[in-house]
């Protein structure tokens, strides 16, 4: 049996070697899935672009694992508002019912409801409709008007009574009542 050759000792570049910094940077290259949570307005979005390319080019069999990474990113410490929006927009491409529990808390907060809808609008699953109907009573103002629009576009007629009540509620702002009126027209139109 041939004797194994001894392991080669790691190469140590001298301090003044111009490739040393490059090599260290390469070895320390961060995980793009971890970096996306730090995105901010005007910051380097290279890692975001990497994740976006991976999501877009994923084979169907690879998407569940990517969706899981995105769900984990939503709970990552230090998640910025821009990072959160980015993750939601990636879920808009590959999200399924799996991500609904993680996104729903965002849906119920006026500050993050739009981002949540970006993630959920394209998911054809009753869990999304249920989450939307539930959020109707928790949102107000523009976020509520946007939610009503999403419900109408999804054609969820089980929300009709709730939306009609909003339409008739004089305390609601004009934008919300207008959104409700148009949603009622859409949901009651003969197809």
């Amino acid at each position: 049996m041939a004797e194994k050759s001894p392991a080669r000792p790691p190469r140590v570049r001298p301090e003044n070697d111009p490739f040393r910094a490059y090599e260290e940077q390469f070895v320390a290259s961060p995980d793009p899935w971890a970096e996306i949570v730090k995105l901010d307005h005007g910051s380097d979005r290279t890692f975001g672009s990497t994740v976006r390319a991976m999501v877009m080019n994923a084979e169907p069999a690879q998407r569940p694992a990517m969706e899981k990474k995105l769900i984990q990113a939503l709970a990552a410490p230090g998640l910025t508002a821009v990072g959160q929006l980015f993750v939601c927009r990636m879920l808009a491409l590959i999200g399924t019912a799996e991500c609904v529990p993680a996104v729903t808390p965002l849906l119920n907060d006026k500050a993050t409801a739009d981002a949540a809808r970006f993630a959920l609008d394209g998911i054809e699953n009753p869990a999304v409709d249920a989450a939307y109907r539930d959020a109707l009573g928790k949102l107000s103002g523009d976020a509520k008007a946007g939610l009503i629009g999403s419900i109408a576009l999804r054609g969820d007629r089980t929300a009709l009574a709730a939306i009609q009540a909003i339409q008739a509620d004089a305390k609601e702002p004009a934008a919300v009542r207008t959104a409700a009126a148009r949603a009622v027209e859409r949901l009651t139109a003969k197809s």
Partner: peptide, 19 residues
Amino acid sequence: DAIANRMRTRSMRGPWSLV
């Protein structure tokens, strides 16, 4: 192509909607 189909549209920030 499910992803391509989702790219036919984009969600809108509230209060805006195509409805």
